[in-house]
Nucleic acid binder design. Structure first.
Lengths: 121, 121
DNA sequence: TGCAAGTCTGCGACAATTTGCAGGCTTTGG
DNA sequence: CCAAAGCCTGCAAATTGTCGCAGACTTGCA
């Protein structure tokens, strides 16, 4: 009955893959649809090589899918609601860090196209 | 507008914290209520020192809370549905790995007290 | 007071990740 | 066919994370 152990290892691998600032931003960037490497690099202000390396990791674990058109490589999320699941983790973020930055989070959610659950209008 | 960057970093820190087999098992072990360090060590078949170190990390990020009774330290989840959120990630696990282990996952979910969504009876 | 159970922290060796750079592959356009 | 654009991979240095061990701390009990 090493089932729990096996599942835990799978989950840990998945979380390890997601536990990087750049990769999270990539996933959120793909929330609304596919983009090519250069666009992603520009959007995230990162060297294209790094973006490519991160995408290779995500691709190896089947979290993103690739489509080639000409010399551009377009990526999209393999699971449409992965980005949603990630944002669901926000309530678990240590509150101390949010002090003085609380509205940054709402702003960020808005920037990512997520309706603000605290807003009543 | 570095808001997205800030939120991504917070989330990455959180995921990094969760991205470890032992810590995930600890969290799932605490799903149904508080337990002391020795019980956890026995349940997970790990040296108590290691369990303590992992718990210290989780505590530092406010994911678990401590209660001392006598010489035992009891831990409980700070967010009751953290364990549920983690299991929600199972659909994102690379399917290749699940081949030949598919029923391990259902078994594990059952062991963790989660109703099997694939079962209709 | 003294000792043992239960747990925590600091430290050092080992292992895994990250990151930039150099070079290679494929496609487009001349 | 050649050159440039766009992207990928391999490699090595630097950073970060892991894990066991030794020692310290607190509590319960004699």
């Amino acid at each position: 009955m090493p089932s729990r152990l096996i599942v835990s290892r799978e989950l840990a691998d998945l979380l390890k893959l997601l536990a990087h600032c750049d990769r999270l931003r990539l996933i959120e960037e793909l929330r609304l649809g596919e983009k090519d490497v250069t666009s992603l690099a520009v959007a995230l202000q990162l060297p294209a090589t790094r973006v490519s390396q991160h995408l290779a990791l995500l691709r190896a674990h089947r979290l993103v899918e690739e489509r080639r058109d000409g010399r551009s490589h377009f990526y999209r999320l393999a699971h449409a609601h992965l980005a949603d699941w990630i944002l669901d983790a926000l309530p678990f973020v240590d509150i101390r860090k949010r002090l003085g930055e609380a509205d940054h989070i709402d702003t960020a959610l808005a920037l990512w196209g997520v309706p603000d659950p605290n807003s009543t209008h």
